[in-house]
Simulated scan of single mutants.
Amino acid sequence: MADSEAAAAMAHSFAQEYFQIPVVTRAYTTACVLTTAAVQLEVITPFQLYFNPDLIIRRYQIWRLITSFLFFGSLGFSFVFNIIFLYRYCRMLEEGCFRGRTADFVFMFLFGGIVMTLFGLFANVFFLGQAFIIMLVYVWSRRHPLIRMNFFGLLNFQAPFLPWVLMGFSLLLGNSIVVDLLGISVGHMYYFLEDVFPNQPGGRKLLMTPELLRAMFDQPEDPDYRPLHEEQQGGDLQQDD
């Protein structure tokens, strides 16, 4: 009886913490975990998920436009590494500079996804999720240029160098850096169009969030909402005070 009550209390606590995660971060992270679980359980295969323009256009397999952003490989170090970075930086963006602006955050997702898909037509990239994470990291790092980072206790650097450090890490692991460069390029495009160009002489805001998204996602801020503090440490990548 005591064990069942403890299990119920634990499940209730987990549910509370889960629903404290902001909605976009919660939805995207959950979709990535469930997709990987479905592959591990052999409910689906990666061949049904990867980005293939020919199958999308000629066989109308439209779902590949989404699933190519949801799969990070089988369970292992690479998957855990990507999920940690996705959760951490997506949440910090959503609770930080996009707090109370869910529609703008969703629009950034759409912008990044569409541009990456267009680049993917020429880059021969099968899965775009890692590039999307690099885009999120890039935008966060450019908006927090003074934060000091520590990578695996080996490197200390300012936040804007983080995407390049991750690219170097991919290179050391023997992975292609095309995906990293794609994420950095799209992240810089968004950052330039949203943060730089509108503040230039003669510049103006080009990225306008559709009113439909605002009607769907922007709600009054919950006063009981508990943000994830940006100084919180996660994994082996830490922020120095």
Rank of each mutant, 00 (worst) to 15 (best):
F192C: 05
D180S: 10
P145S: 13
R142G: 00
N150L: 12
Y225K: 15
A215F: 08
N124V: 12
L207G: 05
L34I: 13
G203C: 08
E94I: 08
M189G: 05
L146F: 05
L228F: 14
T45E: 13
R64N: 09
T45N: 12
L162K: 00
D224E: 06
D218C: 00
L173S: 08
F19P: 01
Q232S: 10
W164T: 11
P160S: 05
L41C: 13
F51K: 02
Y89N: 09
S176P: 11
C97P: 09
T30N: 00
E42T: 03
E230W: 08
N52R: 01
N175T: 09
A159R: 01
L121F: 09
Q130N: 07
S185N: 09
P53S: 01
F69D: 07
D54I: 14
N82F: 00
T35V: 11
V80L: 11
F126N: 15
R204W: 13
R64I: 12
W140Q: 11
A27V: 10
R142C: 09
G202F: 03
Y28A: 11
G73Y: 01
V43K: 04
I134Q: 07
W164I: 14
G153K: 05
A215S: 12
D54F: 11
T25P: 04
F127N: 09
Q20E: 14
R58K: 10
R88H: 12
H229I: 05
M92R: 12
